[in-house]
């Protein structure tokens, strides 16, 4: 495996992406919506709703949360608004961390191999000295990075937003919690890789980018739902739950990636695999 060559493929894919504002601007808007706009509006609404209506509903919701979570929320502060905002910020927005990277990375990944074939550049790669595994991993990293980076940046901004809006009511800087670090660094990455292992296989097999997008949507939607549930569980469940969920996801991702590597062949890059 020539890592230098593999990273060249990654870098070139990222450079092309940077040259495509028609692609990354909507994705940046999506990340901003999920990490900044929606949380800000909801936290603001809760903070200014007084003791009625919305806060009471959230209060009732908090009662069904696990004991560990209820205790943490109770420790967060005295005011119902503060507790509601804390619960919302720490426990209920967890799926954001999954939806954004999966959406962005799969959108990129779906196009990556079939796109080379459609534009004819697959011919160049097929005649290049790069091994098929180098092309696969190079493209995999090129698909993971934008989604994960957008998520990390969004997460950073989200941390500032919730600390500024909720911090004064719960005794200061409180976010990210340990569970969120676990989620971001241990649980989310394998879910992205698992999704991409499926999406890259699709991208290598289908005839057009449109078909790849459609098929990827079908495959990744259930995965997003699973990741949504598991990431919530990782935050809401016992402390080791996150480690277990992440561990299983890593194992599945490794399996998926190994199988996915076989999908990238020179014949597919040349677009003749279906005819063979």
């Amino acid at each position: 495996m020539n890592w230098r060559r593999m990273l060249v493929i990654t870098r070139t894919d990222l450079r092309q992406l940077r040259q495509s504002p028609d692609f990354w601007v909507p994705m940046a808007i999506l990340a901003a919506l999920f990490f900044i706009v929606i949380p800000t509006i909801l936290l603001f609404a809760i903070g200014h709703a007084g003791r009625i209506g919305l806060v009471q509903q959230i209060g009732r919701t908090l009662n069904v949360l696990p004991q560990r979570v209820k205790e943490a929320v109770d420790r967060a502060g005295q005011s119902p608004e503060g507790r509601a905002q804390y619960a919302m910020a720490v426990y209920l927005f967890a799926p954001l961390a999954v939806v954004v990277p999966l959406t962005i990375s799969t959108a990129i990944g779906a196009n990556t191999i079939v796109g080379e074939r459609e534009k004819g550049t697959g011919e160049f790669l097929a005649h290049s000295p790069a091994a098929e595994s180098e092309i696969y991993i190079g493209k995999l990293i090129g698909s993971i990075l934008p989604g994960y980076l957008a998520t990390l940046i969004g997460f950073g901004i989200y941390a500032i937003v919730v600390n500024v809006m909720v911090g004064p009511k719960v005794g200061g800087w409180f976010f990210p919690t340990g569970d969120w670090w676990l989620l971001m660094l241990w649980v989310v990455p394998p879910f992205i890789m698992l999704a991409l292992s499926a999406v890259l296989r699709i991208s290598a097999r289908v005839r057009s980018a449109t078909a790849a997008q459609q098929a990827s949507g079908l495959v990744t939607l259930p995965l997003i739902l699973v990741a949504y549930g598991q990431s919530s569980g990782a935050l809401l469940g016992r402390q080791f739950a996150g480690w277990v969920v992440g561990g299983i996801a890593w194992a599945l991702a490794a399996l998926g990636l190994m199988r996915g590597a076989r999908a990238v062949t020179r014949e597919r890059l040349l677009g003749v695999d279906k005819q063979a």
């Binding site: 060249v8 070139t12 040259q19 004819g120 550049t121 697959g122 160049f124 290049s128």
Partner: peptide, 19 residues
């Protein structure tokens, strides 16, 4: 089989690095 979104330098640099 060139990358339309990249400029000429980047296309040639890509090949140079792969080789």
């Amino acid at each position: 089989a060139l990358y339309d979104r990249l400029n000429g330098w980047d296309n040639l640099r890509y090949a140079a690095e792969l080789f």
